[in-house]
Amino acid sequence: MSSAMHKKKIPWIGTGWKMNKLGAEAAGYAASLAAAPADTFEEAKVFVLPPFPYIRDVARILAGTSVSVGGQNMHWNDAGAWTGEISGPMLRDCGAALVEIGHSERRMHFNETDEAVALKVAAAIRHGLLALVCIGDTKEEFAAGGTADALERQTRALFSQVPASASANIVIAYEPVWSIGEGGTPAEPRFANQQHAHIKQVARDICGLDVPVLYGGSVNLDNCRALIAEPEIDGLFIGRAAWQVSGFLDIIRAVKETVRERQPEQAL
């Protein structure tokens, strides 16, 4: 029986803004979240990842809520001659609690390797940041039936620089590369669930822990219920459907409602 069936699901629900929003927009979004009814974020782990210049402002506005704020990338060194880079201590100083690492856009456009991702994961944990590590199969790997192998390779790599005892500070996001961005095709919920189960088993073999795995890739209000209903999907990492605060709040409500409806089954 799946480990997901033994405990109450507290879904992770988050969004990364990529390179979008200026300061006033970021502050307005955060203020709208902060003004949401008090129970909006209960029984969920909600997070937002603004662009670097606005992390401090967003974190300050959301300080009275349970919404976590994080960065979209970081360097593996603490300081030094790394022009344009952001360190773990800098993120912490801005109020970040977590950091996204290894997004497919970083891997594709900025040549990030599995080895670089592993170093960043270790650095994030060293500085008390939750590491939200993105992994995913390309369209070519998916078409060739190589999804499982690609995910195992990336999962093993991301754990390679951290001791098993630190693995509780890692969350994985399965984001099929073919599902991300405008025109992306969302993964079928059952397929995504199978990949989550595989990722969890690989992680369990490595560190002996049940590592949360979120699904990301063209998540929206239309498919969020079907995705979160799958037992191995621990949460959703949302893109453009959450870039307007109303859209984000609608998905949060839908996800929480779906989890509540299914909780008796999941808690067996």
Rank of each mutant, 00 (worst) to 15 (best):
R156W: 02
H127I: 13
C94L: 15
W76D: 06
D57W: 09
R156G: 01
V58I: 06
A59C: 05
A38P: 12
D78L: 11
A26P: 02
A30E: 00
L132H: 07
A38S: 11
G146K: 08
I125C: 06
R60D: 05
A96L: 04
T65N: 13
Q161K: 07
G102M: 02
T65Q: 10
A118I: 04
T138Y: 10
H127W: 10
F47H: 02
A36V: 08
I125A: 15
V117L: 01
P89C: 02
A124K: 04
V117A: 02
I86H: 07
F52M: 10
G64F: 07
M19F: 15
A122D: 02
E141D: 15
R56S: 12
E100D: 08
D57M: 09
R56F: 09
A63L: 15
T155W: 00
E115T: 13
S160I: 03
R126T: 13
G128M: 12
A31H: 13
F41M: 04
P51Q: 06
F52P: 08
Y54D: 13
V99T: 00
T65F: 10
T83E: 10
I135V: 14
V48L: 07
P37N: 06
V67Y: 13
G136Y: 03
A122I: 08
H103C: 00
A144M: 12
S66A: 05
